[in-house]
Simulated assay, not measured.
Amino acid sequence: MTSIKNSITGLVLEYDSGIIPPPYSHVFRLALDWSKGDLSTALDLHYTEREELSEEEIFDEGFTPDDDYRYKGQLNSVWIKPLQQLFDKTRWTSKDIEDGGITVTAIEKGKDEGVKIPSNQEEWQLMAQDLIQAIYETAKKEAPLKIDYRQVEGDQLTDCSLTVHFSVREVVFEKNGTSRVVNWDFAIQLMKIVFTPDYHYELAKEEAGTKRGAYINCGDGYWHELGKGVVNIDPGFDAVKKIRIGFTDLIQGE
């Protein structure tokens, strides 16, 4: 008997941010079709409820008045297997998602199998975000995400970087002019932690520090010192320490 994951030829992901206020509130529909072996993709993303906001208010939050985006084209087929694996392990729920969430519709040989609500909402939302980022890179709308890191211990200075290529689902770690591909899940988890603490830009520098410590540049040209310019928000979660450990493991080749 053919398993479900092998019989599915596509998925449709639909998301509504729910109660999140504008300019962040948005909806999207992401259609994925691998029935012919490649990965055909169609994205329709729309930001909602911005009518009462001024352009200045929108710009102040880091957006523009025209952030809606549509794409129709191909993505690298490397994404097909992770999608199949996530679908195969997912448990479905009848729980309402009126306050926001994502739904999944499986397509089997061109037939719509009906809308399902995944119980592992966060995993599906993260998958959708990764796919949208892959679309942005493929369409040259955005460049790959790159984090620069400097570790200074005594007279030893180590510069390295971590670059996430969503378009090909690959993460490259570079140190001292040499590079290697690192585990995707480890790197994505580290990237998530990198953006967890609070960054104090009034303490940021345009050059990395040379005194003992750790320094990070999240791609905007500013260097922040961990523990001083980068501080934890949640006292119960030491993100700064986890960032240090993550990059130390990469530097040591683990």
Score class of each variant (00 low, 15 high):
S3D: 02
S3N: 01
K5S: 13
T9N: 15
T9C: 06
E14R: 11
D16F: 10
I19L: 14
P23R: 12
S25Y: 01
S25L: 05
H26M: 07
H26S: 12
K36R: 15
K36Y: 07
D38T: 15
L39W: 03
S40Q: 09
S40D: 06
T41W: 08
A42R: 13
A42I: 08
L43P: 05
D44L: 07
H46R: 09
E52C: 05
S54D: 03
I58Y: 07
D60A: 13
E61N: 10
G62C: 00
D68K: 03
R70G: 13
G73S: 08
G73V: 10
N76P: 05
N76Q: 06
V78K: 10
K81V: 15
Q84V: 09
Q85L: 14
L86D: 02
F87M: 14
F87R: 11
D88H: 11
D88T: 10
K89Y: 03
K89W: 06
T90H: 04
T90M: 06
K95A: 12
K95P: 00
D96S: 13
E98M: 14
D99Q: 14
T105C: 12
E108F: 08
D112W: 08
D112M: 08
E123C: 10
Q129A: 13
D130I: 13
E137I: 09
T138H: 01
K140F: 15
K141H: 15
E142C: 06
L145Y: 11
I147D: 14
Y149W: 00
V152T: 05
E153L: 07
L157K: 14
C160Q: 09
S161R: 00
V164C: 15
H165A: 01
V168T: 14
R169T: 12
N176A: 11
N176C: 03
G177N: 06
V182P: 00
A187C: 01
L190K: 08
K192E: 09
I193A: 02
I193G: 02
V194M: 00
F195V: 10
E206Y: 11
E207H: 02
A208H: 01
K211A: 11
A214M: 06
N217T: 05
C218T: 11
W223F: 03
E225V: 09
E225N: 05
E225Q: 12
V231S: 04
P235L: 01
D238P: 02
D238Y: 04
V240C: 03
K242V: 10
K242R: 13
K242P: 11
I243Y: 01
I243P: 00
D249K: 15
D249C: 12
D249G: 07
Q252D: 10
